[in-house]
């Protein structure tokens, strides 16, 4: 679930829409986050021609910004640009669906060229006790494997791809290695896979430049709840406890046996009475 954005198209006539960006969330709005994962350059981000993120530094996550469903033109420029007319990335069209949750990532492609990718974040509800781990490869590096506790859990993940795992909540010791190998190029590092949360880990930077790193985004509130509290097994305080066992601290099965025997005795007496 990703869309690689078309990069390098000359900026067209853009309508300034600063006023069109809503101040508060409305029903059905999409959520857009933006991650800056191009090492070494501070940038400005324009949405529909309006400066939205000024002096945005590498390794920073912005958002989430609630936006009505629709298509937005995003241009990323040098931080000293006067406007969006000479972008270093884009402009690109981001199509956001109602209630969708997205992260637009400015990053390097596998060959080290700046690009941008729009990822769709999985916000499906998780089972109680579980967390979701999403791993995205947005680094200038070949395909990788992701190792948890030294064993590969994701293999052959290539830029700009992602892999999504559902795990019991807890801390994962994660490392990243060239695919087919186990010698880490990143990590091992502890990643908290929190319950009811989509923990999104980005491998970014450049292998050639020696600045590979991990960035993390979390989307919480995806939890569900225990389906019950089965807090009794013996029937010792049951309101329907058989009368002839009241006051006795005995097992429910034994109580049932006694009840059955008692009922049997009564039935026999009744039958005997009828027979007379």
């Amino acid at each position: 679930m990703r869309k690689t954005l078309i990069v390098g198209i000359a900026a067209g006539a853009l309508v300034a829409v600063a006023a069109a960006l809503p101040a508060s969330a409305a029903e059905g709005d999409a959520q857009l986050s933006v991650l800056h994962a191009v090492p070494g350059v501070t940038v400005d981000v324009y949405v529909n021609g309006a400066l939205t993120l000024d002096d945005f530094t590498p390794g920073t996550l912005a958002g989430p910004l609630p936006l009505p469903a629709g298509t937005y033109s995003v241009a990323i420029t040098a931080s000293d640009a006067a406007d969006a007319s000479s972008p270093v990335i884009g402009p690109v069209d981001l199509t956001l669906a109602a209630n969708g949750n997205y992260t637009a990532v400015a990053h390097l492609d596998a060959a080290g060229k700046p690009t941008a990718t729009l990822f769709t974040n999985d916000t499906a509800t998780l089972a109680a006790g579980e967390g979701r781990l999403t791993v995205r490869h947005v680094a200038a590096a070949p395909a990788v494997d992701v190792l948890a506790g030294g064993s590969p859990v994701i293999t052959n993940l290539a830029n700009p791809g992602e892999s999504v795992l559902t795990l019991p909540a807890g801390t994962v010791s994660a490392s990243v290695a060239a695919t087919g190998t186990t010698d880490p190029v990143i990590g091992p590092a502890d990643v908290d896979v929190a319950e009811g949360t989509n923990t999104i880990v980005y491998a970014w930077g450049s292998l050639a430049d020696g600045n590979l790193a991990l960035a993390v985004q979390t989307i919480g509130g995806l939890h569900s709840n225990p389906g019950g509290v089965p807090a009794g097994t013996a029937g010792l305080v049951a309101t329907n406890k058989p009368a002839d066992t009241s006051g006795l601290l005995i097992g429910g099965a034994f109580a049932l046996l006694l009840a059955a025997l008692g009922a049997g005795v009564v039935r026999k007496r009744l039958l005997a009475k009828d027979a007379r």
């Binding site: 933006v34 939205t52 996550l61 912005a62 590092a189 502890d190 980005y202 991990l214 960035a215 985004q217």
Partner: peptide
């Protein structure tokens, strides 16, 4: 638009 440091470990759980 709120911004946060996305570095792993920048926001340890309470």
């Amino acid at each position: 638009m709120p911004r946060t440091d996305a570095a792993l470990g920048a926001h340890p759980a309470e």
